[in-house]
């Protein structure tokens, strides 16, 4: 069953153009000069219930505008969208009961109060039955292991502890879709992994649809099966995360440890990323130079102690897609 469908969704922002100086300000007041910017250009897609989708793109590509339309915060200029059978900007309040949103950079917890107070308040806002709320809270407290932090003022929690409380807070009302906007921003590697595990577990246990935006390639690779890449307000890729990697995976990285000093290796499609005496890192464009050909060439020329062939990181893949899109 489709939980989100979007058809030809467009959002235009009009921004004021103002000349500098007081004269410009006055003129802008009398004859406002405006410029229209299309943040989202007629995008269409559908997400099924229980799917985990990554929504990726550079800053200003239109991803947060799309999310804000889907959560009812913004009204679109044209197009249709349906989230859980509701039109977000017309039935915002009804929809809000069934979705959860985590904005990594904005807190919904009260800074000076312990999280449990904010939980109580949210329970009231979402009109949860006391018994159901307490049961749900106990379950989340156990799952997220936030029991010890529940009574501590938020300002005294570490970022990781706070983030776990944030996500737990947005799950109190059992949302059917979870919108995550940069949920791991600013967290260290261990905490990041922890948050990802929790989100995965929740998706598997309760079938929550996960709609994620992140600049963190790890988030996308670990959490999502499907990725949508958006740039300049248009969806330029919609498919599996694995396919995404294969499609755009034109390069491989070869790391070598040599028995003899490096003396260079000239071949089309091979670039030296860095070399330090006996160690060297090469990038191979596999469409120009097949990987077997490069490795055999290297083996015939050097005595090799160790060899390692890697795929580039998600970041690199995404960067490549953007670059390709910019050329078009």
């Amino acid at each position: 069953m489709a939980s989100i469908t979007v058809e030809a969704l467009t959002k235009a922002f009009t921004s004021q153009v103002k000349s500098p100086g007081l004269r410009g300000s006055v003129r802008a007041l009398l004859h406002p000069e405006t410029r229209t910017v299309l943040a989202v250009k007629g995008i269409s897609f559908a997400v099924d219930e229980g799917e985990r989708v990554a929504f990726i793109g550079p800053n200003g590509a239109g991803k947060s505008t799309t999310i804000k339309i889907l959560t009812g915060i913004l009204h679109p200029t044209s197009g249709n969208a349906s989230v859980l059978g509701l039109v977000p900007w017309k039935q915002r309040q009804q929809l809000a009961y069934q979705i959860g949103a985590v904005f990594g950079q904005k807190s919904q917890l009260w800074y000076h109060l312990p999280p449990v107070d904010s939980f109580d308040l949210l329970a009231h806002i979402y009109a949860l039955e006391p018994a159901a709320y307490h049961e749900r809270r106990a379950m989340l407290v156990e799952l997220f292991e936030i029991g010890p932090h529940l009574q501590t003022p938020v300002r005294k929690l570490s970022l990781g502890e706070r983030m776990r409380c944030e996500i737990a807070a947005s799950l109190l009302h059992r949302p059917r879709i979870l919108f995550l906007d940069e949920p791991t921003i600013g967290l260290d590697v261990v905490v990041k992994q922890r948050i990802r595990d929790l989100i995965l577990e929740l998706n598997q246990q309760e079938g929550v649809t996960v709609f994620l935006t992140s600049h963190d390639a790890g988030d996308v690779e670990v959490l999502c099966k499907r990725a949508m890449v958006i740039n300049h307000g248009e969806v330029i890729y919609d498919g599996g995360v694995t396919e995404l990697k294969h499609t755009y995976l034109r390069t491989k990285i070869i790391s070598l440890k040599l028995a003899v000093p490096w003396q260079g290796f000239d071949a089309p499609g091979v670039t030296v990323l860095k070399h330090t005496g006996y160690g060297v890192k090469l990038e191979v464009d596999t469409t120009v130079a097949p990987i077997e050909q490069v490795t055999s060439g290297l083996l015939s020329r050097y005595s090799i102690v160790d060899i390692n062939i890697d795929n580039p990181q998600m970041e690199a893949i995404i960067a490549q897609i953007y670059n390709a899109a910019q050329v078009v």
């Binding site: 922002f13 921004s15 103002k18 410029r35 505008t65 913004l74 009204h75």
Partner: peptide, 14 residues
């Protein structure tokens, strides 16, 4: 609220 532009309200200087 219908005109609300979230954090996108930008005055460009030109």
């Amino acid at each position: 609220l219908r005109r609300y532009e979230s954090g996108n309200m930008i005055v460009t200087r030109g």
